[in-house]
């Protein structure tokens, strides 16, 4: 009997973000630069040529930067130059500006806070009944698995008041995956335009953020940023379900500041107000 089978292993669902989750804390995010803003990048192998996806840059002062939006998590920099690069971990990594994905940051935190406040004001009306629509714009197929995982009993995003909908007319949030295949530019645009305001677009995965390893290509746009107005940028290849969940909460201004989480450290991710996200609805 399936009914009894459903009771066999008790409650499997995570309590994150209301409570910390051990697995969420251990999931791997994009590569990051270790040791503050002034890491020396001399030594071998040379830092500049390490990244196959072109995510690493070195400025005139010798400061290494990782554009996490281009990072495909291959781990080469971490393996070959563990003195300069490390993994970020924990559910996070999403930002509200494309430039905000560059670590260490170059952007003025003040402007980020303004972006966050504007988005929060717009999405406040959505409260705890948020409908999600996904469009694949040339993904490799793994991002779809990770988005679908949000419906399994471990993540169960229904508890956060989020639901997938078939019709863009009912959708509040658009999750876009893939490097922006030219073939999907039209259908993606039509889906976006069919959605009522207020609406938020989340670019899910490094391919969607910056084209990843797929670009440059005659058939893709190098990310979906040129095709629809993206407001939340989530790197990862693919991003873990926890990272996708946190990007959704960030889009809705419901992400609590979690200690130890990379992305939540910035001023942009301050909690929306007294009501923090959790099991309550």
């Amino acid at each position: 009997m399936w009914v009894l089978r459903g009771l066999r292993d008790g409650v499997l669902t995570t309590k994150w973000p209301a409570r910390p989750d051990e697995y969420a804390a251990s999931t791997r995010g994009p590569a990051t630069v270790l040791g503050g803003p002034d890491v020396l990048t001399s030594g071998q192998p040379a830092v500049a040529g390490l990244c196959p996806a072109g995510a690493i840059s070195v400025d005139q002062r010798g400061q290494a930067r990782v554009d996490q939006g281009r990072c495909i998590l291959c781990g080469r920099c971490v393996q070959l130059r563990p003195d300069v690069f490390g993994w970020s971990s924990g559910p996070g990594g999403a930002t509200l500006t494309r430039a905000g994905l560059v670590v260490p940051p170059e952007e003025n935190p003040q402007s980020l806070a303004a972006v966050a406040a504007a988005l929060r004001a717009r999405t406040r009306a959505l409260r705890r009944s948020v409908h999600l629509r996904h469009v694949d714009a040339g993904s490799d197929g793994s991002e779809e698995w990770e988005i679908l995982a949000l419906l399994n009993p471990v993540y169960d995003i229904h508890r956060l008041g989020m639901f997938f909908t078939a019709s863009p007319r009912h959708a509040d949030v658009l999750l876009v995956t893939g490097a922006g295949a030219h073939g999907m530019a039209g259908p993606l645009r039509e889906t976006y335009e069919a959605m009522p305001d207020p609406k938020v677009v989340v670019a899910v995965g490094s391919d969607a953020v910056g084209g990843g390893l797929i670009s440059p290509s005659y058939a893709t746009s190098g990310g979906v940023g040129d095709l629809v107005p993206v407001e939340v940028w989530l790197p990862g290849s693919p991003p873990s379900p926890f990272a996708i969940m946190s990007a959704l909460l960030l889009a809705l201004g419901r992400l609590p500041a979690a200690p130890g989480s990379q992305a939540a450290a910035g001023p942009s991710q301050a909690p929306a107000g007294k009501r923090t996200a959790g099991g309550r609805r």
Partner: peptide, 11 residues
């Protein structure tokens, strides 16, 4: 299939 053709082989 052309909607999500990404041109991988040329890449």
């Amino acid at each position: 299939l052309f909607y999500k053709h990404r041109g991988i082989e040329a890449r």
